[in-house]
Write a protein that binds this DNA or RNA. Structure first.
Lengths: 185, 185
DNA sequence: GTAATATGTCACAAAAATGTGATATTTAAT
DNA sequence: ATTAAATATCACATTTTTGTGACATATTAC
């Protein structure tokens, strides 16, 4: 069974996903822990949030890096990265959301995605496929990047909401992404 | 110039989009109005939120119904609905977000989307296109519906974040959606 | 069984957010 | 210019949320 700190982070990610300022009583409750205990592990709300971000980012980067390295074929690399992100579920959604939030609000800076090289690796593959005419050039790379994230999020939410069976969602996501960017396999 | 109530709703939509519990002081400030005035127009936070939802839903439904009726060809109907949603910008994003949020949290019920017939109209077109084999049948209709929303949201956010030029985003969105569902025009 | 560690319970102070009354000031209409 | 309506400012009570101390209870390791 997971240790307390992990349980709290998991609960916080779940709570903060759709409401970045859900109160800590609720988080503690979801974690099955008293609020006092939560405060023993995390100095304050900010601290908890920072830990969530770091933890989720590490998880996602690890999973996607492994996916990247799981195959030599660039298309399969991308496909496996998509699958890995979907499997991360709300871990991925949480990161994506906090990244989006920081775009609008002045304060935070989003070095996070930029700093690691998962994005860079992904971009390189897409740029190459585009170079080789295996991907439409009617779309820009930034658009394709955003689209990739959006399709992952769609898959995650569709499963959570019960709209699409867990088994189907990865398949659907890959079909959709391939079609959307005109990828020839 | 817009009247005060409208200004406040616009500000609230902007504030609540990424943080459903942004404080009312901030909302008032963004609206360029005192908090006291905000409270004169809205009984309380709940009331304001309800007004935002209603207002945004009306805007979006109106725009998308007009788009639906703007052409006889079903494919152009869908395309124009996509464009209309993108033009709605954060109006659409706000509705989509509150709809998503209510999926996870127990309390709220999302009769909103269901009750109006915009969704029904959209679904009918897609079902027919699928019947006629003009859309892949490797994807389910609910998936396609979610994807449609996700691509719209991507376009809106891409513009807000400055990733994609305002002019391009509608074009990109349509290309992507067509490709994703294998639509033959 | 005992000591050490972790957690729960309760109380409480401080801070933040909410909602409202009273009154002054601004704005618009005539 | 005068009046009416809308808004701002300020003060205040209430509620909600946060963070911490003190102590009890439970869990674990030995």
């Amino acid at each position: 069974m997971p240790d307390t700190k992990t349980k709290i982070i998991a609960a916080a990610v779940k709570c903060f996903l759709n409401n970045g300022s859900e109160n800590l009583e609720k988080v503690a409750q979801v974690a099955g822990v008293s609020r006092r205990t939560l405060h023993r592990y995390f100095k304050n709300r900010q601290d908890l949030m920072a830990c969530c971000k770091k933890e989720m980012l590490d998880n996602c980067n690890k999973a996607m890096t492994e996916a990247y390295e799981s195959d030599k074929d660039p298309v399969k690399k991308v496909r496996n990265m998509l699958f890995a992100a979907i499997e991360q579920g709300i871990h991925y959604a949480f990161i994506k959301r906090s990244y989006e939030r920081s775009n609008f609000s002045e304060l935070e800076r989003q070095k996070e995605f930029e700093s690691d090289d998962v994005k860079a690796k992904w971009l390189k593959i897409i740029a190459e496929l585009r170079e080789e005419q295996r991907v439409t050039n009617a779309l820009t790379i930034p658009w394709i990047f955003n689209l990739f994230g959006a399709i992952i999020e769609t898959a995650i939410y569709a499963v959570e909401a019960g709209d699409v069976a867990r088994n189907d969602c990865k398949k659907f996501a890959w079909i959709s992404f391939k079609g959307a960017i005109g990828l020839k396999e």
